Amino acid sequence: MARLIEITDPADERLADFRDLSRADRRPDRPGGRGLVIAEGVVVVRRLVASPYPVRALLGVRRRVEELAEDLVGLDVPAYVASAEVMAEVVGFHLNRGVLAAADRAAQPTAAELADPGRGRRCLAVLEGVGDHENLGAMFRNAAALGVDGVLLGAGCADPLYRRSVRVSMGHVLRVPFAVLEPWPQGLDMLRDNGFRVVALTPRADSVPLRDAGLDRGRVALLLGSEGPGLTEEAIAAADSAVRIPMASGVDSLNVATAAAIAFHAAARP
């Protein structure tokens, strides 16, 4: 089992992986970030431990660390036990969930590997400009729940492994494979060459209503855009078809994570 180590000094150098997590320079995708994956809460830490991401250490109040005892069997890493007050000083905010884990990144497949017909993937999500970490995390959770086989990140997307994304995804970002799709949007041709129909989700009035789009037939790549402007004209033009979710009068669009869940349900087979 992980080695339980009592910590009383928030300045203890062994807690470097968990220090000042609220600061921008601790983000893994920013200069100064260490590229670590941070999991928060018992459920998410449990999923991290079960994932391919190599765990480095845990930090938590004793009660929460003990809840993870069975999960930590055979895991030879330090589990630092501290009071809630010491934890708050270390991470820079009060952590209601009571436990954190830090891990190194794991190797991800390439976009070509995700699209490879021999690997049996039938439904992929392709994102453009999704820069909000909470929306990104929610989309990964939706993808896991609704049977989407992987996520491809086009231009302008945030890092799925940032702490907020991992938390909002409930750790499912650690199990849904993802890759960067480059160049953009020319990389969509690779999906088409591998038998995917590329379908752009857009509220444009001239697009096909979702119920008529036949997303549950064949291999499909669902193209979703940013929270505000949506997909660029270049991305829509590069798709095989444009599809909209019909809405009541006076409402022009949905939050991107909500729209994604509706499209995933129509296309995927959990």
Rank of each mutant, 00 (worst) to 15 (best):
Y53K: 10
F196D: 00
V91I: 12
I236L: 07
M170H: 06
R122P: 04
R46F: 12
E40I: 08
R46S: 14
R192K: 10
G120I: 08
V168Q: 11
L72I: 09
Y80D: 03
D76I: 01
V43Y: 07
A261Q: 02
E233G: 08
V126Y: 06
P28A: 07
A260F: 10
S51I: 04
L174I: 07
D20W: 08
A57Y: 12
A239P: 05
H265G: 12
P229E: 10
T110V: 02
G74L: 12
R122D: 08
F178T: 13
R63T: 09
A179P: 04
W184E: 05
V208E: 14
A11N: 05
A101H: 05
R217E: 00
L58K: 07
R164T: 13
E113C: 06
R164H: 10
R63E: 11
R119E: 00
G131S: 12
L15Q: 07
A79T: 09
G187Q: 01
V243W: 03
L201S: 03
S83T: 13
G98D: 07
R19S: 14
A107W: 06
G41Y: 07
A88R: 14
F93P: 01
R219Y: 00
A235C: 03
G225T: 00
E13C: 12
L127H: 15
G74F: 15
F264M: 06
G137V: 12
A143W: 00
P78R: 08
A235I: 03
R14G: 14
P78N: 06
D252W: 01
A259R: 02
G118L: 06
R27N: 10
V166C: 08
E66F: 06
V91R: 09
R269H: 14
A266D: 04
V126E: 03
A237H: 03
Y53G: 08
A158F: 11
E113G: 04
T232L: 01
L75C: 05
G250I: 03
R192A: 11
R122H: 11
R192E: 10
A259P: 02
V61G: 01
S22C: 05
V86H: 10
L127E: 13
D149G: 15
V199C: 12
L127K: 09
F178N: 10
A155T: 11
R141H: 01
D12M: 13
P28E: 11
A263T: 05
L174K: 06
V81P: 12
S83V: 12
L21I: 11
I38E: 14
A50C: 02
A237T: 13
V243S: 05
G214M: 02
V151E: 08
A237I: 10
P177Y: 14
G154Q: 01
V173R: 00
D71V: 04
C123H: 10
E85L: 06
G187L: 01
V91Q: 09
R175G: 15
R46V: 15
A238Q: 04
M139W: 07
D25V: 12
R197S: 07
D76K: 03
D25C: 09
